[in-house]
């Protein structure tokens, strides 16, 4: 096994986690080179700010009809390492449909596609770092990692923050999923407290009567505002 990295100390998974089979040939084994702190906080890209459409946050309104499944609202705040809101940050999500099937051409799970659900959305955070998606609850699905392997229901999240190091791709899980203990991707995060940071909370305040259940999921990115060194020159 390789030495624990700075990232692992902060709660990130190791690169090599043999129970997740695909890590075995893809995890780097040379020790990571630690960049000096002065270079760690270079600003990050402001990607996607001009390309988000008004309805991109609503995955239930991308087709002629409504998708099948349990309609949900997923909302939360994106914060930087100091707890400050990440404003105008791009949040991209993708997920399986309610039956546990992705529209992706390589998904061979024999569960039905839903003609009214593509499973991709995006939005920008507001001045308080808040984002909001309307979607359906994704289904669990099988994969070939090991015998009788199933992924717990999850929504993939892709995020940008103030610094280059803020860049994060993660997965949001749903509370109380019985598949957690059997899922090597979830378990690759070794610290049980860190694992909890990937689980959304059911929230009655977000829930809208007669319409949709609400889940809250706050996200903390590494890094803070750029150092003056890397700001654009005047």
């Amino acid at each position: 096994m390789t030495q624990q990295t700075v990232g692992e100390a902060a709660g990130h998974p190791p690169y090599l986690y043999p129970d997740y089979e695909s890590t075995r040939l893809r995890a780097p084994k040379e020790p990571l080179i630690i960049l000096p702190k002065a270079l760690s906080d270079i600003r990050g890209p402001a990607y996607g700010r001009g390309t988000v459409g008004g309805l991109d946050y609503d995955l239930t309104r991308q087709h002629g009809g409504e998708p099948l499944g349990e309609r949900i609202i997923v909302t939360g705040r994106v914060l930087d390492g100091d707890g400050r809101p990440v404003r105008g940050g791009l949040v991209e999500v993708w997920q399986a449909n309610a039956a546990g099937r992705y529209t992706h051409h390589k998904d061979a799970h024999p569960a039905p596609l839903d003609p009214n659900f593509s499973g991709a959305g995006r939005c920008l955070t507001d001045d308080e770092g808040r984002y909001r998606f309307v979607t359906v609850k994704p289904g669990a699905y099988p994969w070939k990692n090991h015998d009788n392997a199933w992924r717990p229901a999850h929504i993939h999240f892709s995020l940008f923050g103030p610094a280059f190091r803020s860049r994060l791709i993660s997965q949001m899980y749903f509370p109380g999923d019985p598949l957690f203990e059997h899922d090597p991707i979830f378990q690759s995060v070794r610290d049980p407290e860190a694992r909890k940071r990937m689980i959304s909370h059911f929230d009655l305040e977000t829930t809208e009567p007669e319409w949709a259940l609400g889940y809250r999921f706050d996200i903390v990115l590494e890094g803070r505002e750029a150092t003056p060194l890397e700001r654009p020159h005047a």
Binding site: S158, I169, V189, E222
Partner: peptide, 29 residues
Amino acid sequence: MSPGRGLEPTPSQTIGPFFHDALLERDPT
């Protein structure tokens, strides 16, 4: 929240195999 370290980050997870439609639709190459 531990003093001096700020908030603990949300852990990273793999991008998985099914990201193309969501992340590459606009071909930003």
